[in-house]
Design a protein around this nucleic acid. Structure first.
Lengths: 234, 234
DNA sequence: ACGTATTTGTTCGTATGTATC
DNA sequence: GGATACATACGAACAAATACG
């Protein structure tokens, strides 16, 4: 630790810890020493050490849990986007848990995407996708409420979205457009995705249409930015 | 400001400032009051105020510049990805500045994407794309060096990538696959993109192929996550 | 089930360094 | 060079969540 080498102490410490994680001194899932212990090991104040940890947290290398400790995060995993939407395969591959279902009114964003008026009825179905026992993504599906009235019941009976949509005459559902951006997660999303609130989520907003080209589903997928990669096959 | 209302002071302050920015009290590009002034306005310590600013910075709402002040960031803008790559239109729409050109050896990542061996020659051309006078994205193009020997000179003479590639028999160049993720920017990228180092960039890695399907260009585009949206048309 | 210890989160105070104007 | 403004670092105290007896 160079105390006046032009480079901030907290950066040097972050780099040292990053090296430890990369080299396997602290393997994925492992608990790091406490803040007090680490601060003593590097000979700095607890604030300075916390600054370093905050950086590693943003970089997606560790996760901090109040009262428990600091834990090493796992690496990244790929996930396909686009092409055929709602395939039964997608829903079975990783176990999907239904987070929410319900009837809502369209906000400006989903109204514009689906070609509806603000306040029009919207059927919402929200999934938490789990792979290898770890939460990966949250997807909120928005369906036009007038055309898909009763979709929730159909989904509960059929078990998959694709089967439920077939009852409404939707055989093929294609992804027409996807927008990708990054932002900070909501409190609920952060909790479900098991990630810190100050680490960004990658947001993919997709508009899915049926064979006739009319909008079926405006879906918003949030995923831990450093844990996942969206792959677009062209 | 509720000093013991269960919600942290710095969060309340961040929310208040966010509201001010959203309502136009501080329009895009405006300079916020100094840390000391804001701390006094909210009746908190400067550290607490800095915590709030750090949060707004991560959220992409403000940009902090040492010695100058805190500035409101502009909103988001869309950008198309995929489909036909290297169209002259893209290069003219926003003025592109060439950041770097040169001959390098393939790192594992670009080697795998282009189907080359590690250490094979790679032609690198790096652009900074500017729109409305603001830096938007940085794109690093990697071409197989053996096939595209002399590409840099061709590019300098022709002025556009698409024209230069035509000299090498590449008429159409299609985006085959794009991976999108998020990470923290390098120091150079942060400087060029005019963004804070602790705000994530959205990274889009594209593999572009010619009509015959052989790889032409492995490109890596970094963009300020909160200022831009990638749009994939399917 | 409850209280205590542990561990992280927040807030204040103070001092000094560094970049910009 | 001086003034302004953000960056870093240390110290102290208490709050909040968790773990453990």
């Amino acid at each position: 630790m160079e105390r006046s080498g032009g480079i901030a102490l907290w950066r040097q410490i972050a780099q040292a810890l990053e090296a430890d994680i990369a080299s396997g001194v602290y393997p994925p899932g492992a608990k790091l020493p406490t803040e007090a212990q680490l601060a003593q090991r590097f000979g700095v104040n607890r604030h300075t050490l916390r600054r370093s940890i905050g950086h590693l947290q943003m970089a997606g290398l560790v996760r901090v849990e109040q009262g428990r400790g600091i834990f090493v995060q796992a690496g990244t995993m790929d996930m396909r986007v686009g092409g055929v939407a709602h395939s039964a395969h997608d829903e079975e591959a990783g176990k999907s848990r239904v987070l929410r279902t319900g009837l809502f009114r369209a906000d400006p964003q989903s109204a514009r995407s689906l070609g509806l008026k603000v306040g029009a009825p919207i059927v919402l179905i929200e999934f938490l996708h789990v792979t290898d026992g770890r939460p990966v993504t949250i997807t909120s599906h928005h369906f036009p409420g007038t055309r898909f009235d009763g979709l929730i019941e159909a989904f509960r009976e059929e078990g998959t979205l694709s089967a439920a949509l077939r009852r409404f005459g939707v055989e093929d559902c294609l992804c027409k457009r996807t927008k990708v951006s990054a932002r900070l997660p909501s409190a609920a999303d952060a909790r479900h995705l098991h990630m810190p609130r100050n680490q960004p989520v990658v947001v993919a907003e997709s508009l899915n249409v049926d064979a006739a080209g009319s909008p079926v589903d405006y879906s918003v997928t949030r995923s831990a930015g450093q844990r996942t990669q969206f792959v677009f096959e062209g």
